[in-house]
Design a protein around this nucleic acid. Sequence first.
DNA 1: TTATTGTATGTTAGCGTTAACATATTCCTA
DNA 2: TAGGAATATGTTAACGCTAACATACAATAA
Lengths: 349, 349
Amino acid sequence: MPTELKKKTATLSDIAEAAGVAAMTVSRVVSGVGYVSESTRERVLKALKDHNFRRNGLARGLKRRSTETVGLVLGDISNPYSTELARGVRETLLSRGFNLFICISDAGETEDTQAFKSLAEHSVDGIIVATRSNKGGDKYLRELVETNVPVVALGRDLEHRHVDLVGTDNFKGGFVATEHLIERGHKRIAFLGANLSVGSQLKRLQGYVAALEENAIAVDDELVVGHGDDNVGGYSTEEIGFEGMKRLLSLKNRPTAVFARNDFTAIGAMRAISDAGLSIPKDVAVVGFDDIPMAARMSPSLTTVRQPMRLQGEIAATMLLDRITSKTPIRRRQRVLDCELIVRESSSE
Amino acid sequence: MPTELKKKTATLSDIAEAAGVAAMTVSRVVSGVGYVSESTRERVLKALKDHNFRRNGLARGLKRRSTETVGLVLGDISNPYSTELARGVRETLLSRGFNLFICISDAGETEDTQAFKSLAEHSVDGIIVATRSNKGGDKYLRELVETNVPVVALGRDLEHRHVDLVGTDNFKGGFVATEHLIERGHKRIAFLGANLSVGSQLKRLQGYVAALEENAIAVDDELVVGHGDDNVGGYSTEEIGFEGMKRLLSLKNRPTAVFARNDFTAIGAMRAISDAGLSIPKDVAVVGFDDIPMAARMSPSLTTVRQPMRLQGEIAATMLLDRITSKTPIRRRQRVLDCELIVRESSSE
DNA sequence: TTATTGTATGTTAGCGTTAACATATTCCTA
DNA sequence: TAGGAATATGTTAACGCTAACATACAATAA
């Protein structure tokens, strides 16, 4: 025999036989439910240990019609806020005895659908979706909802009477960030990284526009630069900020302040400003969005809009658990969380 | 009735009844295996669509003893290379018809074990581990391996005759990075972020030491600064670089070059150097490790050691699939990938 | 004493799927 | 035209687990 025989995984019946009891008794010991005498329990526990028993979640799930598992679908993971969000979700789930499986989908409809499908087929008890909305994926998700799979949308929308929503007040975020710059005396304020195909981005832009209008500043289309329909995440948006800022700086009448759609984009913009030999915030003030850890530690440190990512994860998980444990259907609920302007050096000396 | 009734998920038997065939025939249509006449297939397909059928992966997995699913356990996800790694794994798996579930564990033994356990209980066909090694987690993993669960370790070790290894040549990376600095004329070269409890970090440090010794430069303990047993990921290591560099700069005989354990740490170091009014690379040269996208885009751009993260993911996935599909046990295999020095501005003008 | 409740176990059946086997029926080929 | 192969379908029995029910004995209450 060239290689060692490996142990076959033991089943409840195997343990039962070894301990001289019925399989059901072992099941009771393992799941800690029902009556088992102390002496029997000890005997069974020993057998479990001896045989290295691990229960078969498939069989268990099949019978119980619940796997106590939740799926989280993320678009971009290389992003500090994805981490925070996942942490919030996971901690809440764990404290309620649920497990978390994460799927990544960063390449559009097919992948989204693929991810949802694989989660659904593995009978997760519910799904938290934090990817960008797209037609094919949304369609599939709605089908899942129709067949009783609890779904919560995080940082995005999914129109359905049984899907909950958690998000940040992006409009307000855009508004206060822009207002802050206006208060500092800026009139030519650019918006960097506009991507109208993403709901949250659109809201931030709308907040920006509203703040300008409220202060009787005309919106200059030239100052709203975006990347059309870019589909990149995390760090990659730094490049968008860099390129966009270069374009802005090359304008005859360049902006004196810029509001970037997220912190990475802002960081890219700061780099472009430094490269051009200009000073922040003297020549150009910068405000970002998200408050990633790095924002506080740059020099100059970055003024930004903080959104409570972990809290969003916690709330989404709680909502999902509500749906999972509720016997009766729950109507759509929406939680829009407040966000907070964190003023640092990049916008004020 | 206050809320709408929702559809019950249809089973093979439901479809079979609707189409007037046996459940087995429906199964054949769904999985595309075995003989089914064209007319029957069409009838079944229609019924499947009408009833919105989704197959029950639990039952399927239970019967087939395979879920065609793989688990990837990551420590820190907010890290560009985790993304790349996951991408490599996922693409390879998808192309072979497997699904990927990711678990995050960033808080030590209990969480590691928890993650492994939940994957194992859900009967994934194999596990790729990319977390830091720790006693409790490793013990549990070995138990899994003993009960036939295929495991591949990525970027870390797990001693077991049936566990494959994929990693980068960290020793060489540390060596070439240090050698490069020596070639540039540096004699006082610091190592920043030493964490001896992590295998890969240790190897990088050893490479650093070896390069110094080969060039007859004594290792100065003062220049090896670390964080003992820190347990932080991604961005947080930027802080370690910042603090460590401040300490180094305060030495009476400060280093003229520094090799940081990863790019984030290097970025932190660069910040400390700039803050001290010193110039990079004139006063202090900096070399990082990983080549995250941002490294190329900073100013000055960061010299670093590139490791092929996506490739590592692909190889790990391939090795795991080998194990999953092989009928006979496979002996431990190890793939140590080469890494490459990318010279940029932070170490040469 | 007898009924009542609590404790401790066992038995049965079925969750939804598919491997393995059993039939039919058709189609060649020798 | 017999007989083997290919095609098309159905039946049965698990996979490993637990809900639901059944039983048995103890301890307590009336």
